[in-house]
Design a binder for these strands. Structure first.
Length: 607
RNA sequence: GCGGGAGUAGUUCAGUUGGUUAGAACGCCGGCCUGUCACGCCGGAGGUCGCGGGUUCAAGUCCCGUCUCUCGCGCCA
């Protein structure tokens, strides 16, 4: 017989009754009834009830074994007595009568319970992640992650993409986030950058003639975290040659759509997968106030600047902003006129927390406007408002007024806040049980950087501008669109990509408009620029955030729930103790001296 | 860097208007129990109430500072 096991803990059933078997696993729970002792033995495959009674000399020894100890038991599979079967357990028809038992590794008292999800704080869970990972939910989430990655990889292979690995110690990529730097010992004062994405490498592979590239690529960005953002994450990175934007979408959309369909019922709730028509960036910003709208939210934004600009509308707060070039955006909330005043007050309070003066609204009742600001809006103007926003009796309409960019943004947030409030008030608004996808297309190539007071790339600077060189030479840069697209699902940006610029002269012009001279271009991206001069195919691609995909499928609020090992919100790993100060020797090797922030030094001296 | 929330037993939490010896559940230790599967019953141990200062006869509770965790803003396309 094998040293450790003949079966797994999820395997035994009535077919094995009478067999002598060996199982190994963790003590999940014990139930001691005096004369009889039950042990639930757990491994990643399942759980098996093992029994020993007072006829056996083992009972006293086994009784002392703590939960989460690793043990091996030998015994006979027997049918459970009438009425004691457990339908909730896959192995619930049988139990193993213990004839031999070995302690492989005794567990100390554990810092939190593995057998139950008691809401243990994340800091504890991360410090003892190996224990946390034993819990059923994490085992399932990590398995989902495995399955999703296998699913994506298989589909890419089936489409004749080649899988690559690209360097981790490399130079800065054009993503725009802060780089993680690694000092070079052999080159004093010089640093490698960890890749924010393998952007240049995948483009270079196209220039090398590989035609269809993909990678499950680790990416690193040194920016503060969010629930859906980590310092290191994985992307399904894809690039193709001789393709249009439509080709890229047609190739990758089935991969994502099918992967979602395969795993959509992971939580036990059946979920639909819907792919909606392409959404131009401009329309997204106007109708949803976001370039990653949650399309389960049916509320839409309209522009009503003209209403508040009328002579018979007296609302000075808005008029003043409009005079400075601002806009008024409106969100219709259907059938909320019955809601108590607190419904509106809470939303107003929410808006103030977001830094707005408030969230003005008008309620339409009997064809008339009601509410705090209704008296400033004439009957004629109210009628026009109803036409533009499609208002009916019993509806309310909320207003955001600011300069265009800020107004769109705030309206987008308000759109979600109103939707949440309606759901909370029992008016079902946000659609449930569905993954709503779409491609957001036609992103602007440039934007005006208010801080630097200059034109800069709005997204990936390697994108091909729509209209090519001609557009760059003859169009107002702020009106030029890029062949750039995002894939959005339920309010999350799942992917971003573009048809790339493969012509050095367009590259030079494009960077020139953003104020980067040929010297900067050569210095930062010289390798790729050179490659373009030796025959570069038109190409494009995208990258999907794998962790976000798994997070959505697992219905988790947080990326940390779908990673085995992960840092906390401040990017510390309390389990491994990272980051740590470097030893003097190491710093010397690297020709580095640490220059601590003065305030930190003061604090440490005080302490 | 900024804002919201949290910090009390190993874990999750309760703790009234500032007032006796700071409680509960799970876990842990000891005992009882032959059919449970979140077993049950009895008993016990376990607390720098994050830390520092202040107000007060009296502080877990009020005030100030500080640290940690978390969510968001900035940042990240």
């Amino acid at each position: 017989m094998h040293d450790f096991r003949t079966h797994t803990c999820g395997q035994l059933g009535e077919a094995q009754i009478g067999e002598t078997v060996k199982l190994s696993g963790w003590v999940h729970r014990k139930r001691d009834h005096g004369g009889v002792l039950f042990i639930d033995l757990r491994d990643t495959y399942g759980m098996t009830q093992c029994v020993v009674d007072e006829d056996s000399p083992l009972i006293n020894e086994i009784d002392k074994w703590r939960n989460e100890s690793v043990i091996t038991i030998t015994g006979t599979v027997r049918k459970r007595a009438e009425g004691t079967a457990n339908d909730r357990l896959a192995t619930g028809a049988i139990e193993v009568y213990i004839e031999g038992a070995d302690m492989q590794s005794a567990a100390d008292v554990i810092p939190f319970q593995v057998a139950e999800d008691d809401g243990t704080g994340e800091d504890h869970r991360l410090k003892y992640r190996y224990l946390d990972l034993r819990r059923e939910k994490m085992q399932k989430n990590i398995r989902l992650r495995n399955n999703v990655i296998r699913s994506l990889r298989e589909k890419m292979w089936n489409k004749d993409f080649q899988e690559f690995q690209t360097p981790i110690l490399t130079a800065s990529s054009p993503e725009g986030a802060r780089d993680y730097l690694v000092p070079s010992r052999l080159h004093p004062g010089k640093f490698y950058a960890l890749p924010q994405a393998p952007q240049q490498f995948k483009q270079l592979l196209m220039m090398s003639g590989f035609d269809k590239y993909f990678q499950i690529a680790p990416c690193f960005r040194d920016e503060d975290g969010r629930a859906d953002r980590l310092a290191e994450f994985y992307q399904l990175d894809v690039e193709m040659s001789f393709v249009t934007q439509q080709d890229v979408h047609d190739t990758i959309q089935p991969v994502i759509e099918q992967t979602f369909r395969e795993h959509a019922n992971f939580t036990g709730e059946e979920r639909k997968v819907e792919w909606l028509p392409n959404l131009p960036y401009k329309e997204a910003m106007l109708k949803y106030g976001s370039d990653k709208p949650d399309l389960r939210n049916p509320l839409e934004i309209v522009d009503v600047t003209e209403v508040f600009n009328r002579d018979d509308v007296e609302f000075k707060a808005f008029k003043g902003v409009i005079a400075k070039g601002g806009v008024v955006r409106a969100i219709r909330a259907p059938k909320v006129s019955e809601q108590p005043r607190s419904f509106f007050d809470k939303l107003n309070g929410w808006a103030q927390k977001e830094g707005a003066p408030g969230l003005g609204y008008i309620v339409i009742e009997g064809g008339e406007g009601k509410g705090p600001i209704a008296k400033f809006v004439s009957a004629e103007a109210t009628k026009q408002l109803c036409e533009i926003a499609g208002l009916e009796d019993g509806d309310a309409v909320f207003f955001v007024c600011d300069m265009e960019g800020k107004a769109a943004n705030m309206a987008g947030k308000a759109r979600d806040a109103i939707c949440d409030s309606m759901d909370a008030a029992g008016i079902e608004t946000r659609e449930k049980g569905v993954y709503k996808f779409c491609w957001v297309v036609d992103f602007p190539m440039y934007e005006f950087d208010e801080k630097a007071q200059k034109i800069d790339f709005s997204h990936n600077p390697f994108s091909m501008p729509q209209g090519g060189l001609d557009a760059l030479e003859n169009q107002d840069p702020l009106t030029i669109m890029a062949n750039q697209y995002d894939c959005v699902c339920n309010g999350f940006e799942l992917a971003s990509g573009a048809i790339r610029n493969h012509k050095p002269e367009i590259m030079e012009k494009a960077f020139g408009i953003a104020g980067y001279g040929m010297d900067t271009l050569e210095e930062k991206f010289g390798g790729m620029l050179n490659a373009m001069r030796f025959g570069a195919p038109p190409h494009g691609g995208l990258a999907f955030g794998i962790d976000r995909i798994v997070m959505l499928l697992a219905d988790e609020p947080n990326l940390r729930e779908v990673y085995a090992f992960v840092m906390n919100g401040a990017y510390e790993d309390q389990m491994m103790g990272a980051p740590t100060p470097a030893m003097e020797e190491q710093l010397k090797d690297l020709h580095l001296k640490v220059n601590m922030p003065k305030e930190l030094v003061k604090k440490e001296e005080a302490a």
